[in-house]
Design a protein around this nucleic acid. Sequence first.
DNA 1: GTCTATAGGTGGATAGAC
DNA 2: GTCTATCCACCTATAGAC
Lengths: 199, 199
Amino acid sequence: MTIEGDETRARLLTAARDLYLEVGSARVSLREVARRSGVSAAAVYRHFDNKQALLQQVCGEGFRIFASYLMRALAAATPAERMVSCAEQYLSFAVENPRDYRVIFMSDADDVIALGPPHLDDGTHDPTFQFLVDRVKECMAAKVIARGDADEVATLIWSHVHGLVSLRLSGLLGRVGNDAAFARLYRHSVDKLLAGLKP
Amino acid sequence: MTIEGDETRARLLTAARDLYLEVGSARVSLREVARRSGVSAAAVYRHFDNKQALLQQVCGEGFRIFASYLMRALAAATPAERMVSCAEQYLSFAVENPRDYRVIFMSDADDVIALGPPHLDDGTHDPTFQFLVDRVKECMAAKVIARGDADEVATLIWSHVHGLVSLRLSGLLGRVGNDAAFARLYRHSVDKLLAGLKP
DNA sequence: GTCTATAGGTGGATAGAC
DNA sequence: GTCTATCCACCTATAGAC
Protein backbone atom coordinates (compact mmCIF):
# COMPACT_ATOMS: atom_id res chain seq x y z
CA MET A 1 0.00 0.00 0.00
CA THR A 2 2.91 2.35 -0.58
CA ILE A 3 2.18 5.48 -2.54
CA GLU A 4 4.63 4.61 -5.30
CA GLY A 5 3.11 1.20 -5.94
CA ASP A 6 -0.38 2.55 -6.24
CA GLU A 7 0.85 5.26 -8.54
CA THR A 8 2.16 2.75 -11.06
CA ARG A 9 -1.05 0.82 -10.81
CA ALA A 10 -2.99 4.02 -11.40
CA ARG A 11 -0.82 4.88 -14.39
CA LEU A 12 -1.47 1.44 -15.84
CA LEU A 13 -5.20 1.86 -15.35
CA THR A 14 -5.41 5.25 -17.01
CA ALA A 15 -3.15 4.11 -19.85
CA ALA A 16 -5.35 1.06 -20.30
CA ARG A 17 -8.45 3.19 -20.32
CA ASP A 18 -6.97 5.64 -22.83
CA LEU A 19 -5.99 2.83 -25.13
CA TYR A 20 -9.35 1.16 -24.73
CA LEU A 21 -11.11 4.39 -25.62
CA GLU A 22 -8.94 4.65 -28.72
CA VAL A 23 -9.02 1.15 -30.15
CA GLY A 24 -11.79 -0.70 -28.35
CA SER A 25 -11.60 -3.46 -25.80
CA ALA A 26 -10.81 -6.19 -28.31
CA ARG A 27 -7.58 -4.56 -29.41
CA VAL A 28 -6.13 -3.57 -26.06
CA SER A 29 -2.80 -5.28 -25.45
CA LEU A 30 -0.81 -5.41 -22.26
CA ARG A 31 2.35 -4.58 -24.15
CA GLU A 32 0.95 -1.31 -25.37
CA VAL A 33 -0.47 -0.46 -21.96
CA ALA A 34 2.92 -1.10 -20.43
CA ARG A 35 4.67 0.89 -23.14
CA ARG A 36 2.48 3.92 -22.45
CA SER A 37 2.98 3.58 -18.73
CA GLY A 38 6.74 3.50 -19.08
CA VAL A 39 7.16 0.03 -17.63
CA SER A 40 7.84 -3.39 -19.08
CA ALA A 41 5.09 -5.76 -20.07
CA ALA A 42 6.01 -8.12 -17.26
CA ALA A 43 5.45 -5.42 -14.65
CA VAL A 44 1.74 -5.42 -15.39
CA TYR A 45 1.46 -8.81 -13.73
CA ARG A 46 2.62 -7.36 -10.42
CA HIS A 47 -0.53 -5.23 -10.38
CA PHE A 48 -3.11 -7.37 -12.16
CA ASP A 49 -3.59 -11.10 -12.35
CA ASN A 50 -4.01 -11.09 -16.10
CA LYS A 51 -5.38 -9.13 -19.03
CA GLN A 52 -8.98 -9.85 -18.19
CA ALA A 53 -8.59 -8.52 -14.65
CA LEU A 54 -7.17 -5.28 -16.00
CA LEU A 55 -9.94 -4.90 -18.57
CA GLN A 56 -12.60 -5.57 -15.98
CA GLN A 57 -11.34 -2.62 -13.97
CA VAL A 58 -11.37 -0.46 -17.09
CA CYS A 59 -14.89 -1.49 -18.08
CA GLY A 60 -16.15 -1.16 -14.55
CA GLU A 61 -15.14 2.48 -14.67
CA GLY A 62 -17.28 2.89 -17.79
CA PHE A 63 -20.24 1.47 -15.98
CA ARG A 64 -19.75 3.80 -13.03
CA ILE A 65 -19.75 6.71 -15.47
CA PHE A 66 -23.01 5.44 -16.97
CA ALA A 67 -24.59 5.25 -13.54
CA SER A 68 -23.49 8.80 -12.77
CA TYR A 69 -25.23 10.07 -15.89
CA LEU A 70 -28.48 8.37 -14.97
CA MET A 71 -28.44 9.73 -11.42
CA ARG A 72 -28.56 13.29 -12.74
CA ALA A 73 -32.14 12.59 -13.81
CA LEU A 74 -33.14 12.78 -10.16
CA ALA A 75 -32.59 16.53 -10.24
CA ALA A 76 -35.79 17.01 -12.22
CA ALA A 77 -38.90 18.04 -10.30
CA THR A 78 -41.72 15.70 -11.39
CA PRO A 79 -41.93 11.99 -12.27
CA ALA A 80 -42.64 12.84 -15.90
CA GLU A 81 -39.70 15.22 -16.09
CA ARG A 82 -37.44 12.69 -14.40
CA MET A 83 -38.42 10.11 -17.02
CA VAL A 84 -37.67 12.45 -19.90
CA SER A 85 -34.42 13.48 -18.24
CA CYS A 86 -33.58 9.82 -17.86
CA ALA A 87 -33.83 9.33 -21.61
CA GLU A 88 -31.85 12.51 -22.15
CA GLN A 89 -29.03 11.36 -19.88
CA TYR A 90 -29.01 8.00 -21.62
CA LEU A 91 -28.48 9.75 -24.92
CA SER A 92 -25.77 12.00 -23.50
CA PHE A 93 -23.87 9.06 -22.10
CA ALA A 94 -24.01 7.22 -25.41
CA VAL A 95 -22.90 10.18 -27.49
CA GLU A 96 -20.15 11.23 -25.10
CA ASN A 97 -18.91 7.72 -24.27
CA PRO A 98 -19.52 5.55 -27.31
CA ARG A 99 -16.82 3.01 -26.47
CA ASP A 100 -18.21 2.48 -23.01
CA TYR A 101 -21.70 2.20 -24.40
CA ARG A 102 -20.53 -0.40 -26.85
CA VAL A 103 -18.83 -2.56 -24.26
CA ILE A 104 -21.66 -2.30 -21.75
CA PHE A 105 -24.63 -2.78 -24.05
CA MET A 106 -23.39 -4.13 -27.37
CA SER A 107 -20.77 -6.66 -26.38
CA ASP A 108 -20.96 -10.25 -27.47
CA ALA A 109 -22.61 -12.46 -24.88
CA ASP A 110 -19.95 -15.15 -25.28
CA ASP A 111 -17.13 -12.69 -25.58
CA VAL A 112 -13.72 -13.13 -24.04
CA ILE A 113 -14.25 -10.33 -21.60
CA ALA A 114 -16.75 -10.91 -18.86
CA LEU A 115 -18.07 -7.60 -17.61
CA GLY A 116 -19.43 -6.26 -14.43
CA PRO A 117 -22.72 -4.78 -13.33
CA PRO A 118 -25.28 -5.31 -16.05
CA HIS A 119 -24.56 -9.01 -16.41
CA LEU A 120 -25.86 -10.37 -13.13
CA ASP A 121 -27.63 -13.46 -14.47
CA ASP A 122 -29.26 -14.19 -11.16
CA GLY A 123 -32.87 -13.18 -10.63
CA THR A 124 -32.09 -9.67 -9.43
CA HIS A 125 -31.93 -6.66 -11.68
CA ASP A 126 -28.82 -4.65 -12.10
CA PRO A 127 -29.05 -1.35 -10.25
CA THR A 128 -29.40 0.84 -13.35
CA PHE A 129 -32.25 -1.15 -14.81
CA GLN A 130 -33.89 -1.01 -11.42
CA PHE A 131 -33.45 2.77 -11.56
CA LEU A 132 -35.48 2.87 -14.76
CA VAL A 133 -38.12 0.58 -13.30
CA ASP A 134 -38.45 2.99 -10.37
CA ARG A 135 -38.94 5.92 -12.73
CA VAL A 136 -41.65 3.95 -14.52
CA LYS A 137 -43.34 3.10 -11.24
CA GLU A 138 -43.46 6.69 -10.07
CA CYS A 139 -44.87 7.70 -13.46
CA MET A 140 -47.57 5.10 -13.04
CA ALA A 141 -48.33 6.39 -9.57
CA ALA A 142 -48.55 9.92 -10.95
CA LYS A 143 -50.86 8.70 -13.74
CA VAL A 144 -48.36 9.76 -16.41
CA ILE A 145 -48.04 6.19 -17.63
CA ALA A 146 -50.86 3.66 -17.69
CA ARG A 147 -50.66 1.10 -14.89
CA GLY A 148 -49.24 -2.24 -15.82
CA ASP A 149 -46.15 -4.42 -15.55
CA ALA A 150 -43.45 -1.87 -14.70
CA ASP A 151 -40.65 -4.27 -15.65
CA GLU A 152 -42.15 -4.81 -19.07
CA VAL A 153 -42.70 -1.12 -19.69
CA ALA A 154 -39.15 -0.38 -18.58
CA THR A 155 -37.85 -3.04 -20.94
CA LEU A 156 -39.90 -1.54 -23.74
CA ILE A 157 -38.52 1.95 -23.14
CA TRP A 158 -34.98 0.69 -22.75
CA SER A 159 -35.20 -1.33 -25.96
CA HIS A 160 -36.50 1.66 -27.84
CA VAL A 161 -33.74 4.05 -26.81
CA HIS A 162 -31.11 1.36 -27.11
CA GLY A 163 -32.30 0.54 -30.61
CA LEU A 164 -31.91 4.10 -31.72
CA VAL A 165 -28.57 4.60 -30.02
CA SER A 166 -27.00 1.34 -31.14
CA LEU A 167 -28.04 1.74 -34.77
CA ARG A 168 -26.60 5.21 -34.63
CA LEU A 169 -23.32 4.01 -33.11
CA SER A 170 -23.06 1.27 -35.70
CA GLY A 171 -23.39 3.87 -38.42
CA LEU A 172 -26.55 2.30 -39.82
CA LEU A 173 -28.69 5.44 -39.62
CA GLY A 174 -27.12 6.97 -42.67
CA ARG A 175 -30.03 9.32 -43.11
CA VAL A 176 -29.32 10.96 -39.78
CA GLY A 177 -26.19 12.84 -40.60
CA ASN A 178 -24.95 14.48 -37.43
CA ASP A 179 -25.39 14.35 -33.68
CA ALA A 180 -27.86 17.23 -33.63
CA ALA A 181 -30.12 15.61 -36.21
CA PHE A 182 -29.94 12.34 -34.34
CA ALA A 183 -30.78 14.04 -31.04
CA ARG A 184 -33.88 15.53 -32.67
CA LEU A 185 -34.98 12.16 -33.97
CA TYR A 186 -34.26 10.60 -30.60
CA ARG A 187 -36.31 13.14 -28.65
CA HIS A 188 -39.15 13.00 -31.11
CA SER A 189 -39.17 9.25 -30.92
CA VAL A 190 -39.12 9.19 -27.12
CA ASP A 191 -41.96 11.70 -27.00
CA LYS A 192 -44.07 9.52 -29.26
CA LEU A 193 -43.31 6.42 -27.25
CA LEU A 194 -44.19 8.04 -23.93
CA ALA A 195 -47.34 9.50 -25.46
CA GLY A 196 -48.36 5.99 -26.43
CA LEU A 197 -47.88 4.81 -22.85
CA LYS A 198 -50.23 7.36 -21.32
CA PRO A 199 -53.27 6.12 -19.36
CA MET B 1 -13.88 -22.18 -64.67
CA THR B 2 -13.22 -25.87 -64.35
CA ILE B 3 -15.55 -27.84 -62.16
CA GLU B 4 -12.75 -28.93 -59.81
CA GLY B 5 -11.55 -25.40 -59.19
CA ASP B 6 -14.98 -24.09 -58.33
CA GLU B 7 -15.54 -27.04 -56.09
CA THR B 8 -12.57 -26.20 -53.93
CA ARG B 9 -13.67 -22.61 -53.81
CA ALA B 10 -17.14 -23.74 -52.77
CA ARG B 11 -15.69 -25.99 -50.08
CA LEU B 12 -13.68 -23.07 -48.73
CA LEU B 13 -16.77 -20.89 -48.66
CA THR B 14 -18.95 -23.37 -46.82
CA ALA B 15 -16.14 -24.17 -44.40
CA ALA B 16 -15.66 -20.46 -43.79
CA ARG B 17 -19.35 -19.98 -43.20
CA ASP B 18 -19.54 -22.95 -40.82
CA LEU B 19 -16.62 -21.64 -38.84
CA TYR B 20 -18.03 -18.13 -38.85
CA LEU B 21 -21.36 -19.41 -37.54
CA GLU B 22 -19.52 -21.25 -34.78
CA VAL B 23 -17.05 -18.68 -33.52
CA GLY B 24 -18.11 -15.36 -35.01
CA SER B 25 -16.47 -13.28 -37.69
CA ALA B 26 -13.72 -11.92 -35.47
CA ARG B 27 -12.29 -15.34 -34.72
CA VAL B 28 -12.33 -16.83 -38.20
CA SER B 29 -8.84 -17.75 -39.36
CA LEU B 30 -7.73 -18.75 -42.82
CA ARG B 31 -5.66 -21.58 -41.37
CA GLU B 32 -8.72 -23.19 -39.79
CA VAL B 33 -10.82 -22.67 -42.90
CA ALA B 34 -8.11 -24.36 -44.96
CA ARG B 35 -7.79 -27.18 -42.40
CA ARG B 36 -11.51 -27.92 -42.63
CA SER B 37 -11.44 -27.79 -46.40
CA GLY B 38 -8.60 -30.25 -46.57
CA VAL B 39 -6.20 -27.86 -48.25
CA SER B 40 -3.20 -25.89 -47.11
CA ALA B 41 -3.44 -22.33 -45.85
CA ALA B 42 -1.61 -21.04 -48.90
CA ALA B 43 -4.20 -22.52 -51.24
CA VAL B 44 -6.80 -20.07 -49.99
CA TYR B 45 -5.00 -17.26 -51.77
CA ARG B 46 -5.56 -18.95 -55.13
CA HIS B 47 -9.30 -18.44 -54.62
CA PHE B 48 -9.51 -15.23 -52.61
CA ASP B 49 -7.36 -12.15 -52.54
CA ASN B 50 -7.17 -12.11 -48.77
CA LYS B 51 -9.08 -12.80 -45.59
CA GLN B 52 -11.36 -9.81 -45.96
CA ALA B 53 -12.45 -10.87 -49.44
CA LEU B 54 -13.39 -14.31 -48.13
CA LEU B 55 -15.31 -12.90 -45.18
CA GLN B 56 -17.19 -10.48 -47.40
CA GLN B 57 -18.51 -13.40 -49.41
CA VAL B 58 -19.54 -15.14 -46.21
CA CYS B 59 -21.30 -12.10 -44.79
CA GLY B 60 -22.96 -11.32 -48.09
CA GLU B 61 -24.61 -14.71 -47.89
CA GLY B 62 -26.00 -13.77 -44.47
CA PHE B 63 -27.49 -10.63 -45.89
CA ARG B 64 -29.14 -12.52 -48.73
CA ILE B 65 -30.72 -14.80 -46.17
CA PHE B 66 -32.01 -11.78 -44.28
CA ALA B 67 -33.56 -10.37 -47.43
CA SER B 68 -35.24 -13.70 -48.15
CA TYR B 69 -36.90 -13.66 -44.73
CA LEU B 70 -38.26 -10.16 -45.27
CA MET B 71 -39.68 -10.98 -48.68
CA ARG B 72 -41.95 -13.60 -47.16
CA ALA B 73 -43.92 -10.76 -45.61
CA LEU B 74 -45.33 -10.00 -49.05
CA ALA B 75 -47.43 -13.15 -48.82
CA ALA B 76 -49.79 -11.47 -46.37
CA ALA B 77 -53.01 -10.02 -47.74
CA THR B 78 -53.32 -6.47 -46.41
CA PRO B 79 -50.87 -3.64 -45.72
CA ALA B 80 -51.41 -4.00 -41.97
CA GLU B 81 -50.83 -7.74 -42.08
CA ARG B 82 -47.76 -7.29 -44.23
CA MET B 83 -46.34 -4.88 -41.66
CA VAL B 84 -46.96 -7.30 -38.80
CA SER B 85 -45.54 -10.12 -40.86
CA CYS B 86 -42.52 -7.97 -41.57
CA ALA B 87 -41.81 -7.66 -37.86
CA GLU B 88 -42.43 -11.37 -37.44
CA GLN B 89 -39.93 -12.29 -40.15
CA TYR B 90 -37.41 -9.92 -38.64
CA LEU B 91 -37.71 -11.77 -35.36
CA SER B 92 -37.46 -15.16 -37.04
CA PHE B 93 -34.32 -14.17 -38.87
CA ALA B 94 -32.68 -12.92 -35.68
CA VAL B 95 -33.57 -15.97 -33.62
CA GLU B 96 -32.63 -18.45 -36.33
CA ASN B 97 -29.50 -16.65 -37.55
CA PRO B 98 -28.03 -14.81 -34.57
CA ARG B 99 -24.49 -14.69 -35.95
CA ASP B 100 -25.65 -13.16 -39.20
CA TYR B 101 -27.80 -10.70 -37.31
CA ARG B 102 -24.85 -9.71 -35.21
CA VAL B 103 -22.56 -9.09 -38.15
CA ILE B 104 -25.15 -7.23 -40.19
CA PHE B 105 -26.65 -5.01 -37.50
CA MET B 106 -24.36 -5.05 -34.49
CA SER B 107 -20.90 -4.85 -35.96
CA ASP B 108 -18.47 -2.14 -35.08
CA ALA B 109 -18.57 0.79 -37.48
CA ASP B 110 -14.76 0.99 -37.59
CA ASP B 111 -14.29 -2.76 -37.61
CA VAL B 112 -11.71 -4.58 -39.64
CA ILE B 113 -14.31 -6.21 -41.81
CA ALA B 114 -16.17 -3.97 -44.20
CA LEU B 115 -19.53 -5.46 -45.02
CA GLY B 116 -21.88 -5.42 -47.92
CA PRO B 117 -25.43 -4.29 -48.49
CA PRO B 118 -26.58 -2.32 -45.47
CA HIS B 119 -23.52 -0.09 -45.40
CA LEU B 120 -23.99 1.97 -48.50
CA ASP B 121 -23.01 5.35 -47.10
CA ASP B 122 -24.18 7.20 -50.17
CA GLY B 123 -27.55 8.89 -50.08
CA THR B 124 -29.55 5.89 -51.19
CA HIS B 125 -31.13 3.42 -48.83
CA ASP B 126 -30.18 -0.17 -48.77
CA PRO B 127 -32.86 -2.36 -50.38
CA THR B 128 -34.13 -3.88 -47.15
CA PHE B 129 -34.64 -0.57 -45.41
CA GLN B 130 -36.43 0.62 -48.50
CA PHE B 131 -38.61 -2.48 -48.21
CA LEU B 132 -39.69 -1.37 -44.74
CA VAL B 133 -40.30 2.17 -45.93
CA ASP B 134 -42.58 0.78 -48.62
CA ARG B 135 -44.54 -1.20 -46.04
CA VAL B 136 -44.93 1.98 -44.00
CA LYS B 137 -46.07 3.93 -47.03
CA GLU B 138 -48.75 1.45 -47.96
CA CYS B 139 -49.93 1.44 -44.35
CA MET B 140 -50.22 5.19 -44.52
CA ALA B 141 -52.15 4.96 -47.75
CA ALA B 142 -54.49 2.42 -46.15
CA LYS B 143 -54.92 4.71 -43.12
CA VAL B 144 -53.43 2.09 -40.80
CA ILE B 145 -50.62 4.44 -39.84
CA ALA B 146 -50.94 8.19 -39.51
CA ARG B 147 -49.51 10.11 -42.45
CA GLY B 148 -46.06 11.57 -41.93
CA ASP B 149 -42.42 11.13 -42.80
CA ALA B 150 -42.28 7.48 -43.90
CA ASP B 151 -38.51 7.33 -43.51
CA GLU B 152 -38.72 8.52 -39.95
CA VAL B 153 -41.52 6.14 -39.04
CA ALA B 154 -39.61 3.27 -40.61
CA THR B 155 -36.53 4.22 -38.63
CA LEU B 156 -38.61 4.34 -35.48
CA ILE B 157 -40.05 0.87 -36.08
CA TRP B 158 -36.70 -0.56 -37.06
CA SER B 159 -35.02 0.90 -33.97
CA HIS B 160 -37.69 -0.55 -31.76
CA VAL B 161 -37.45 -4.11 -33.04
CA HIS B 162 -33.69 -3.90 -33.28
CA GLY B 163 -33.49 -2.69 -29.69
CA LEU B 164 -35.44 -5.67 -28.45
CA VAL B 165 -33.59 -8.18 -30.60
CA SER B 166 -30.10 -6.88 -29.91
CA LEU B 167 -30.59 -6.69 -26.15
CA ARG B 168 -31.89 -10.23 -26.29
CA LEU B 169 -28.93 -11.43 -28.35
CA SER B 170 -26.51 -9.72 -25.99
CA GLY B 171 -28.08 -11.58 -23.11
CA LEU B 172 -29.14 -8.39 -21.36
CA LEU B 173 -32.82 -9.26 -21.05
CA GLY B 174 -32.27 -11.65 -18.19
CA ARG B 175 -35.89 -11.46 -17.18
CA VAL B 176 -36.99 -12.94 -20.49
CA GLY B 177 -35.83 -16.48 -20.04
CA ASN B 178 -36.50 -18.33 -23.27
CA ASP B 179 -37.28 -17.73 -26.91
CA ALA B 180 -41.01 -18.20 -26.42
CA ALA B 181 -41.18 -15.63 -23.64
CA PHE B 182 -39.13 -13.22 -25.69
CA ALA B 183 -41.37 -13.73 -28.72
CA ARG B 184 -44.38 -12.85 -26.55
CA LEU B 185 -42.72 -9.69 -25.30
CA TYR B 186 -41.65 -8.82 -28.84
CA ARG B 187 -45.13 -9.21 -30.31
CA HIS B 188 -46.75 -7.35 -27.47
CA SER B 189 -44.26 -4.55 -27.88
CA VAL B 190 -44.74 -4.31 -31.63
CA ASP B 191 -48.51 -4.26 -31.19
CA LYS B 192 -48.24 -1.36 -28.77
CA LEU B 193 -45.92 0.55 -31.04
CA LEU B 194 -48.14 0.13 -34.10
CA ALA B 195 -51.17 1.08 -32.05
CA GLY B 196 -49.40 4.31 -31.13
CA LEU B 197 -48.80 5.06 -34.81
CA LYS B 198 -52.45 4.84 -35.83
CA PRO B 199 -54.10 7.90 -37.37
C1' DG C 1 8.82 -4.28 -8.09
C1' DT C 2 10.91 -3.98 -12.04
C1' DC C 3 13.74 -5.65 -15.43
C1' DT C 4 15.48 -8.80 -19.54
C1' DA C 5 14.88 -12.91 -21.81
C1' DT C 6 12.16 -16.30 -23.40
C1' DA C 7 8.69 -19.77 -23.88
C1' DG C 8 4.83 -20.86 -26.61
C1' DG C 9 1.08 -19.52 -29.14
C1' DT C 10 -1.86 -17.05 -32.72
C1' DG C 11 -2.41 -15.15 -37.14
C1' DG C 12 -1.83 -13.20 -42.34
C1' DA C 13 0.69 -13.46 -46.21
C1' DT C 14 4.47 -14.79 -49.68
C1' DA C 15 8.28 -17.63 -52.35
C1' DG C 16 9.38 -21.17 -54.90
C1' DA C 17 9.19 -26.22 -55.92
C1' DC C 18 6.12 -29.48 -58.14
C1' DG D 1 -3.46 -25.19 -58.16
C1' DT D 2 -1.57 -27.02 -54.53
C1' DC D 3 2.06 -27.92 -51.67
C1' DT D 4 5.94 -27.05 -48.02
C1' DA D 5 8.63 -23.88 -45.84
C1' DT D 6 9.13 -19.64 -44.15
C1' DC D 7 8.87 -14.72 -42.75
C1' DC D 8 6.96 -11.46 -39.95
C1' DA D 9 4.08 -9.34 -36.64
C1' DC D 10 1.77 -9.65 -32.58
C1' DC D 11 0.17 -11.45 -28.42
C1' DT D 12 -0.17 -13.59 -23.17
C1' DA D 13 2.34 -15.21 -19.68
C1' DT D 14 6.33 -16.89 -16.91
C1' DA D 15 11.37 -17.49 -14.99
C1' DG D 16 14.93 -15.70 -12.82
C1' DA D 17 18.38 -11.94 -12.13
C1' DC D 18 18.77 -7.50 -9.80
